[in-house]
Design a protein around this nucleic acid. Structure first.
Length: 455
RNA sequence: GGUGGCGUAGCCGAGUGGUUCAGGCAGAGGCCUGCAAAGCCUUUGACGCGGGUUCGAAUCCCGCCGCCACCUCCA
């Protein structure tokens, strides 16, 4: 039985999807106005693993990620760079998905953009106004009336009193709102800003409303999973619920939130200005190191990411690659996947990848031990389990079969060394090996001959 | 101030009231190897502090200390 921690319930709940055997999930993507950082990568990998595991477990998954391509930050940044908002958004959206692609994050089944759903956004706002849950202000836009919805705050567990208290302490509250906790559904355009016509004046959607409208449009009411970073719990997700349920549309059944990336014991965040580039990390340590590091930690915990941690993750992944290489070199047979229930058992407990990784580590050891003993069948069986579970985590092992262009030249050198060793001319053998080392080639002598791989 | 989370061996990081219990990285010793590389085996050492419950607690309760997050744009 799959169990999922639901932020709204603050506890682990048995997973009962809307439709048996199917999972509909919506994960908040980005507002593309800057280069993707480590946090984007962490959250994307987290939900990619969840998606892959669900599919691995036999569910038919429909996966939606949105792009909020019109927002205050985009307008400001486009102005700074002297390009249009669509140009800016397209540029950073591409950058975002390019990096996710490197990380092996599967493309979503649907990729809705806010500007493509203006009609649905209008319809939802109109419903809210008709139901008395929202109001328009001439020249300002439309706002959600928070005190009209008794359940407001149920996701982030805040009462209206608490919200009013902290809102009052804030400095700049929008002057036009009736209450400091109300939030914009539609923002009137200032001169020069991009705008769409609407019954509440020319303007643009407020942040939050696009996700309610797009999730309902694509996945329908009462869809299964809604995810995002924990920093989105309030106000973004709380408001998404208010907008959908306030208009009478049951929203997500389960709310999942991933922990923040930490840098030097502090949350990496925009206000702190300590954001690290995702592409830099991948360039230096490789995408699988990043992915493995994420998988080694529970998705709801904070995760410190630094060079040391990525280096350690890389060492582990390379150990798995070495196993794949050795098996290939030894001519181990391909076998069907056996009993992976040990992996499923831990993963079913709220996607417990740290323990899933531990299970895989056990199979890896089994495979290595069998291989050392010359038992290729058992080694192959254990390895098949490793590969299968790794697939659920989205990691593909490198067995060295993709050798590159100068492979034949390297093979010649390796043979020279083998000949030298056969003649017990170890000085010559080591000289050739040094030559290969310079080329970034690492040798491994196995019972069935010398194999090599690139550093 | 309100709400939530965390504090485990050199580092990262799981964990259930009770025989050894994670796992990874690093370290030490051994095996294998001409030497390496890879691998296997063994091994060092832990549960923030103070109480309490219990036959027994890292695991439950209370208090304290420290750290972090959300309450504001944020994955």
């Amino acid at each position: 039985m799959l169990r999922i921690y639901d932020t709204a319930a603050r506890s682990v709940r048995d997973f009962e999807p809307r439709t048996a055997g199917k999972v509909s999930m919506y994960v908040c993507g980005v507002t593309p106005y800057d280069a993707p950082h480590l946090g984007h990568g962490r959250t994307a990998v987290t939900f990619d693993v969840i998606r892959r595991y669900l599919a691995w477990r036999g569910y038919e998954v429909e996966f939606v990620t949105n792009v909020t391509d019109i927002e205050d930050k985009i307008i400001a940044r486009a102005s700074e760079q002297g390009i249009t908002e669509p140009e800016l958004a397209a540029k950073f959206e591409k950058m975002y998905f390019d990096q996710l692609d490197r990380l092996g994050v599967q493309p979503p089944d649907h990729l809705p953009r806010a500007t493509e759903f203006i009609a649905q956004i209008h319809a939802l706002i109109a419903e809210l106004i008709a139901m008395g849950r929202a109001y328009a202000i001439e020249g300002s836009g439309a706002y959600f009336k928070v005190d009209s919805l008794g359940t407001y705050g149920k996701l982030s567990h805040r009462t209206l009193e608490q919200l009013l208290e902290s809102a009052g302490a804030r400095v700049d509250v929008d002057e036009d709102k009736r209450s400091p906790v109300d939030f914009a559904l539609w923002k009137a355009a200032k001169p020069g800003e991009p705008a769409w016509e609407s019954p509440w004046g020319a303007g643009r959607p407020g942040w939050h409303i696009e996700c309610s409208a797009m999730a309902l449009e694509i996945l329908g009411e009462d869809f299964d999973l809604h995810g995002g970073g924990s920093d989105l719990v309030f106000p973004h997700h709380e408001n998404e619920i208010a907008q959908a349920e306030g208009a009478g549309h049951p929203f997500a059944r389960y709310w999942m939130h991933g922990g923040m990336v930490m840098v030097g014991k502090e949350k990496m965040g925009k206000s702190l200005g300590n954001m690290l580039s995702l592409s830099d990390a991948i360039d230096v340590h490789g995408p699988r190191s990043f992915r493995w590091l994420v998988a080694q930690h529970h998705y709801r915990n904070q995760l410190e990411i630094n060079d040391e941690a990525l280096t350690a993750a890389r060492a582990t992944i390379e150990g798995y690659d070495a196993l794949a290489r050795r098996l290939r070199a030894a001519g181990a047979p391909m076998v069907a996947v056996g009993d992976t229930s040990a992996f499923a058992d831990v993963m079913d407990n709220d996607f417990d990848t740290p323990n899933g990784v531990a299970v895989i580590a056990g199979w890896r050891r089994d495979a290595n031990t069998a291989l050392d003993a010359g038992n290729l069948d058992d080694a192959a069986k254990s390895f098949a389990l490793v590969v299968d579970a790794m697939g659920a985590l989205g990691i593909v092992l490198d067995d060295g079969s993709s050798t590159g262009e100068d492979a034949s030249a390297i093979d010649v050198l390796v043979q020279q060394r083998t000949d030298a060793r056969a003649n017990r001319d170890f000085a010559e053998a080591d000289r050739v090996r040094d030559e290969l080392t310079v080329l970034g080639v690492v040798l491994e002598d196995t019972p069935t001959g010398t194999i090599w791989h690139r550093l």
